[in-house]
């Protein structure tokens, strides 16, 4: 497939992310020698990755290389079998934690393809999600009025139509609306570790900018972000500290933003896989 390069205006980026990184701090996430099977097919084959608080890591790689597999394993999806390896999240054994516990402790996955849930009201869902987290933290649950105040404020940051709050979760949403709804959820849940799985795919430039602003506004010294992407386009808006190439079940190269540009120019340089990229 040929990647069409759409011309777009580069917005000036306040390059503040480096400031967030403190290399002496304990890792937010530490993945060691991770092996994952899907239906007995080996997808991840000894993956290592360490992320410190405040860092933004971009993960790129050809289609089918296992990026979404990694994202889903981090979120606890049981259809992916971890056959070997360790994942530490803030010093806890992540693989021992249920999906909901991970979420309440601060793991957030923005899905590549957010599912539609007919009949479940978006607002009811968002409130239940936030209150699940708050009660886990020993905080009082927000009542309807307080929640409404909060959501009105957050929804502005992603420029989402308020009408979407009163619809069923993602039902009939456009691709862009689904992605914004994911970012809205992230803004409300304020996770420690956000994994954004191709949140940039299918967005036009305006939407990409809005979503990127949403992501940037969440950058902080205490929050880490994994940005899974196909294209370096989003990296102009959300500048990563590190760029990794995932292929053949492993991180085969790591570098900084320049690596993403190189990939865009030359491809992944993997003869056997480049067809699908």
């Amino acid at each position: 497939m040929k990647i069409k390069k759409t011309p777009f205006k580069l917005r000036p980026i306040v390059n503040s992310e480096r400031r967030h990184v403190n290399n002496n701090r304990k890792p937010m996430l530490e993945i060691q020698n991770l092996h994952v099977n899907v239906e007995d097919k080996k997808i991840l084959d000894g993956l290592n990755l360490t992320i410190k608080p405040g860092e933004v890591h971009a993960i790129m790689g050809p289609n089918g290389s296992g990026k979404s597999t990694l994202a889903n394993v981090l979120a606890g999806r049981e259809t992916y079998q971890v056959t070997h390896g360790k994942i530490q999240f803030g010093g806890q054994d992540l693989l021992e934690m249920s999906t909901e516990l991970r979420s309440r402790e601060g793991v957030f996955l923005a899905f590549q393809n957010p599912i539609e849930i007919p009949g479940v009201n978006n607002m009811v869902f968002l409130k239940a999600a936030l209150n699940a987290k708050r009660s886990h933290q020993g905080l009082e649950e927000l009542d309807a009025a307080d929640f409404l105040k909060l959501i009105r404020q957050k929804i502005k940051t992603v420029k989402m139509d308020e009408g979407l709050l009163h619809r069923s979760v993602n039902e009939g949403f456009s691709g862009g609306e689904k992605k914004r709804n994911e970012i809205l959820q992230m803004a409300i849940l304020e996770p420690k570790l956000a994994i954004l799985d191709e949140t940039d795919s299918g967005l036009d430039v305006d939407a990409l900018q809005i979503v990127s602003e949403g992501i940037n506004s969440l950058r902080s010294p205490d929050r880490s972000i994994i940005l899974v992407t196909h294209y370096q386009r989003i990296l102009n808006y959300v500048v990563p500290d590190y760029v990794h190439i995932l292929a053949k079940g492993k991180i085969i190269r790591s570098g900084d933003k320049a690596l993403a540009l190189e990939i865009e120019e030359k491809g992944y340089g993997l003869n056997d896989l480049s067809q699908s990229a």
Binding site: E100, S103, F108, I117, A129, H136
Partner: peptide, 14 residues
């Protein structure tokens, strides 16, 4: 859908 809801902190029963 169950996974989606759980990934946002809702327990499985809920």
């Amino acid at each position: 859908a169950v996974f989606y809801l759980r990934s946002r902190g809702l327990d499985e029963t809920k």
